[in-house]
Design a protein around this nucleic acid. Sequence first.
RNA 1: GCGACCUUCGUCUAUCGGUUAGGACGGCUGCCUUUCACGCAGCAAAGAGGGGUUCGACUCCCCUAGGUCGCACCA
Length: 478
Amino acid sequence: MTEPVVTRFAPSPTGFLHIGGGRTALFNWLYARRFGGKMLLRIEDTDRERSTEPAIAAIIDGLQWLGLDWEGEPIFQFARAARHAEVARQMLAEGKAYECFATAQELTDMRELARAEKRPPRYDGRWRDRPAADIEAAHAAGLKPVIRLKAPQDGETIVEDRVQGRVVFPNKDLDDTVLLRSDGTPTYMLAVVVDDHDMDVTHIVRGDDHLTNAARQTHIYQAMGWRVPVMAHIPLIHGSDGAKLSKRHGALGVDAYRALGYLPAALRNYLVRLGWSAGDKEIFTTQEMIDAFDLPQIGRSPARFDFAKLENINGLYMRAMPVDELLAALLDTLPHLEHGTALAAKLDDGLRAKLLAAMPGLKERAKTLVELLDGARYLYADRPLALEPKAKELLDGGGRAHLIALLPRLEALGDWNASGAESVVRAYSEEIGAKLGSVAQPLRAALTGRTTSPGVFDVLETLGREESLARLRDQTKD
RNA sequence: GCGACCUUCGUCUAUCGGUUAGGACGGCUGCCUUUCACGCAGCAAAGAGGGGUUCGACUCCCCUAGGUCGCACCA
């Protein structure tokens, strides 16, 4: 029996949950699910200057919207500062760490000198082996030291990464990491290691921007005699031009994807295939993802974010979704959609029924909820309808005559439904020897104000007799 | 500057020394059709460059180029 898998998602609340973070969370979540373990959420808020409450709320909201849950309450790293300091002091007592009184100015000079000599900027270890007397003197002078790790100076540190492979770092390239600042607060490097250890994290899955940190953190694990968790550093997501992901590329908060009308299940499906694959399979249910997910299938090269593909997958999900569920998803998302309030304000049982009736025709024509909402506008537009320019042209260019001719025939229609309306319109167009399109298009223009919509006969049916005829009369007047 | 990592169609990817290098998105044709979509059928499109190793390299090794990340008392 192996120990249970514990993964964690550990965002710093200095901004919103962006798309790369969302994917990292998804991978952690999937891995935990796959192996019957759990995912923890840790908010890395030790940077008091930049951490904000709204960011914390946005991250939690983003994860929930994406459908990714975590075990227990979120752990706030800052709240554990005393424990982190305790570990630093323990390392100091054990000689695994030392006090360093180098001033900010000294450190800056050190870096500039290194740069001038074309060496990598690195702390030179000037307090590493100072006699006790020097340290006492510095204390006596009222100086506040940082605690630095006494990292190995020779040999190499090996990170056995499950995605990147065996990565070797010469120890001479890694300097003595600061563990505790001079004000007594822990650094990220210390806090992460202590927390991952205390939380019994077995697998660390994070962006490969942390790969070199992994070597430094390995030193801390070794100094404490703790077992190093399995590491998996996944490549970052890039923008469509291969450069760093920017706003323009999709480096938006996940809440922005909700506002753009993407379904969480579709976004998950898109994200899981960015950097991970299982043969040629493209579409996965959540369960299929869980069953197929594992670390070896994660690629080592960065992927570019592609809105077109996301849109395609979202369209696939929308079309596959039962109409009542899709409608529910649309209505739930209304507060987040740009023109959502217009529909929300008019929503009643009648409109709800019309939306549901129109949904089969609507969902074939939309790739996002935004497009779905837009496509549904004719259902609740106020009379007389504002006509789009092309729709107006259609009526002015001879279409109105057809409406005038059709109006009495439609008024005479017994049962008001799509097939009945179709017979009437077809009979008329045959009578006058016109193509069906030449009659159907003006009809559509008058009924929806547009030149594209679901099938006109379906439009007539869902709109109902009164509304349909009224809209036609509106357009025959002038 | 130093270090690490990456490099298959425009994009996401399959391939785990032997394939006509496959799939998906996007693009283009066509079919369907009352519009727009959907759907269906088809077409074009790739191993960064150069050296090795091998009977045989997309696959292994080296170099070059390009890209990304990292090098804080930030996380």
